[in-house]
Amino acid sequence: MSGYMAGVLAILGINVIFAYGIYLTAAAGQLNLGGAGFQAIGAYAAAILSVELGFGIVSTIVLATLAGALIGFLIAFPILRTRGVYMVLATFAFAEVVVGIILNSDTLGGAMGMIMFDYIETPAVLWTAAGVVAFVFYLMSTPIGLAMRAVHDDEPVADLMGVNNRAIQVAAFASGGALAGLSGALYAFYFGFVEVQYFNAFLSIFVLLYVLIGGTQTAWGPLIGAAFFTLIPEALRIGEDWRFLIFGVLIVLMMIVRPEGIVTRDAIDRIVARLMPGDRRA
C-alpha cells in the first residue's frame, strides 16, 4: 500500500465514522449541522488527554468518544426543544460556539492548534471504521433501530406504538456525538495535530451532505455517501475549489433525481430481487 493510498483510506475511514455519527440523528429524523463541533470535541479531547494528561492511545480514544457522547447527550435537550430549520440552525450554532471556545482558549492552543506525540496508522483507522459500520448495521437491524426510523417517519404514531420518542432522539444525539468524537480522536492521532480551522462550517455541511446524499433510510447510505465524496475527488485528482463545484452540481442533480438519497429501500429491494429472484425475504 503506497503512502498516498494509505492516506486516502485513512481519510475515508475517518469520514465514514464521522458520517455515521451524523447519520444516527438523521435516521431518527433530526438534521445535525454541527458535525464539525462534535468532531472538534473528540479531536481536542484526544489532544488534551494524550498530550497534557499522558493517557495511552486506546484509553484516550475511548474517553474522547465518551466526551462526544456526553456533549451530544447534554446538547440534545436544548436542541430538541427546536424543530425543523431551527434545529438545523441550533446545531450549526453549537459548532460555532465550540470553535469559538477553542479559538479563545490558551490551553487548547487557540489558532495555533495542538501537536500530538502519539500516532496511529491507517489499519487502526480502518479496523475502527469497520467496527463502527458493523455496529450501526447491527443497531439499525434491532427493534431500537426500527423505532428510530419510526420516529423519523411519524412521531405521534411512533409514540402511540409505545416508542419513547424523546429517549430515542436523545440517544441518537448522544451516540451520534460519540461517533463524531471518535472520528475526531482518530483524526488527531492520524494527522498528529489538531487545528481549529479544520473544524469549520464547510466540514459540517459536507458530512451532512455525505449522509443525505447517501440516503438515510438504510445503514448503507453514509458508507456510500462518504466513500463517494472521499474517493471520487481523489480519483479525479481534483483540488478543493473544484470539489465545491462538483458538490454543488451533484447536490442539485441529486435533489432532482434521487431526493431520498442514493441508497433507498426501494433500490435495495430491486437489487435483491434481481440477484435472488426466488427470495421473498422482507
Binding site: 427493534p143 426500527l146 423505532a147 426510523r149 419510526a150 423519523h152 417517519d153 411519524d154 405521534p156 404514531v157 411512533a158 406504538m161 409505545g162 416508542v163 433510510q217 429501500r265 429491494d269 422482507a282
Partner: peptide, 19 residues
C-alpha cells in the same frame, strides 16, 4: 392511514410489537 412510509410492510407490522 398512518403507516410509516419508509418502512416495509413487515417492518410496519413489527413496529406493533414495540410495546
Amino acid at each position: 392511514i398512518r403507516l410509516m412510509p419508509h418502512l416495509s410492510v413487515v417492518e410496519n407490522v413489527m413496529l406493533g410489537q414495540h410495546a
